[in-house]
């Protein structure tokens, strides 16, 4: 499988404004993301996960180390548009990433910047809006839509650039449960259609839906593996002030009380299936 993103010994420092102190947001992170994969990066606020996302999109550049996106080095200025076109980004606040006061014009913004032909833009905009189930709202003003709908518009704006990869930077943090569900189901659909997904989040139940979970803590990678592998470290995860899925937590509690439960139970469905054997 070929590589979409390769990060080698990334360090990112910045100077904090209020006291001129040098802060290390990312301290020596190496990570490879394969094409077509679905990776969740999870961590507390301040763990460096959002900084990492912005380094992938060349919105921030490494203090040391290298980031390759689709083979392009993010530090090379001439490749920056290729990088942003191949790895698009969706941000946390649905309001502050929509440029135009008409939905379809906003979705057109990316392709317009890339210099795509007008008829081709029209087609991309329609396709993207259909992909996020927002085609019927194409003429509306964004401020009249719900949070989840706005976030879907932002996703359509990313898709319209025809990227191979989309980096989602806490896309559900400001949404209600319904909006969160809408956005997660679109993300999973995009992954099934072959788009490489990197999902930055602090909700473990969302991360558990990925193929791979990378846990960041204080600028470093603390755990990395499939959900099954990562959740074996329930105590370490709790120490990093993150939650584990309910089924994992319950299994852990029951095991502590002497009940033998297999370690690969992650979802509620798996838990119920296990219980059924004892009926």
């Amino acid at each position: 499988m070929s590589e979409m993103i390769r990060i080698e010994n990334l360090v990112f420092n910045y100077t904090r404004e209020q006291d001129d102190e040098e802060i290390s947001a990312i301290r020596d992170v190496s990570l490879t993301v394969n094409k077509g994969s679905f990776t969740a990066i999870i961590g507390r606020n301040g763990s460096g996960k959002s900084t990492l996302a912005k380094n992938i999109n060349a919105l921030l550049l490494p203090s040391s180390g290298v980031v390759y996106v689709n083979g392009y080095d993010t530090a090379k200025e001439e490749d920056v548009w290729n990088i942003r076109q191949s790895a698009a980004m969706v941000f946390q606040n649905p309001d502050n990433q929509i440029v135009s006061s008409i939905v379809e014009d906003d979705v057109a913004f990316g392709p317009e910047n890339l210099g795509v032909e007008p008829e081709q833009i029209r087609k991309r905009v329609d396709d993207s809006l259909k992909a996020v189930n927002m085609y019927q709202h194409r003429k509306k003003a964004p401020h009249l839509l719900s949070g989840g709908q706005k976030q879907r518009i932002a996703i359509a704006g990313a898709i319209a650039m025809r990227p191979e990869c989309i980096v989602f930077d806490e896309p559900t943090a400001m949404l209600d449960p319904k909006g969160r569900e809408e956005v997660m189901s679109i993300i999973k659909e995009l992954h099934q259609e072959g788009i490489t997904v990197v999902l930055i989040t602090h909700f473990m139940e969302e991360a558990a839906q990925a193929e791979r979970i990378v846990i960041m803590d204080r600028g470093k990678i603390a755990l990395d593996g499939t959900p099954g592998e990562v959740f074996l470290h329930r105590d370490a995860i709790q120490e990093m002030n993150l939650d584990v899925p309910l089924a994992v937590e319950l299994s852990w509690r029951l095991r502590r009380r002497g009940i033998d439960i297999p370690e690969d139970i992650i979802s509620m469905e798996e838990m119920v299936e296990f219980l059924c054997q004892y009926k």
Binding site: L250, M268, M271, V272, L275, C276
Partner: peptide, 20 residues
Amino acid sequence: LGLSLPEPAKLINMARQKGI
């Protein structure tokens, strides 16, 4: 009403439906 149960209640209800 577009609402859900607390996660633990959801799990137990799923189990009950399977006859547990």
